[in-house]
Design a protein around this nucleic acid. Structure first.
Length: 160
DNA sequence: GCCAACGTTGGC
DNA sequence: GCCAACGTTGGC
């Protein structure tokens, strides 16, 4: 059986909702609340334990890659879809065949504050990044090996 | 606060 | 199945 190469991702979070500092405090977290089919399919099919994650702060000042995380548990049903009190409640989801999934992630290393969206935009090697394309709303995005390497270099993180 | 870019919903 | 209306995301 061939060894799967680790893949890398970018997860968006609004830091006033859940920040990288919150993840460091918690030690690990359920990445719940994904309610977009494209993102769900990535979680279901492609995001695997050990994969690298760029923890991106969206709708923030500054917008930035705040830290690096790692997938510590692969996709399983997102409990919040069955919780009527949750803002992520989905009454259409069948408990026998849950619509929405989540993964668990844990922190690896914080990034320097200089790793902002503007800094990424100024980097020619990252010109093709999905994050920087207009209208890119997907909350879970693939990051290429080259992009990942470049960003680790910018962050001064040796291996993550 | 604005609004472009999408995704979803629902009438037909 | 089409598509207009609506809601959300998220950068600016």
């Amino acid at each position: 059986m061939a060894t799967r190469k680790r893949q890398t991702w970018l997860f968006k979070s609004e830091p006033n909702v859940y920040s990288y500092a919150d993840l460091e405090r918690d030690g690990r977290t359920h990445w719940d609340g994904i309610r977009n089919y494209q993102a769900r399919n990535l979680l279901r099919d492609d995001v695997k334990e050990g994969d690298g994650v760029l923890f991106y702060h969206s709708n923030a000042k500054p917008m930035a890659v705040a830290g690096v995380a790692r997938v510590v548990r692969e996709a399983y049903p997102d409990a919040s879809q069955f919780d009527p009190k949750s803002k992520y409640h989905d009454p259409k989801s069948d408990p026998g065949d849950p619509t929405w999934l989540m993964v668990d992630i844990a922190p690896v290393a914080a990034c320097p504050e200089s790793l902002t969206r503007d800094a990424l935009k100024d980097e020619p090697a990252l010109a093709e990044m999905m994050l920087l394309r207009r209208g890119s709303r997907l909350s879970i995005q693939p990051v290429s090996a080259r992009e990942w390497k470049r960003i680790m270099t910018m962050a001064g993180i040796r291996d993550a």
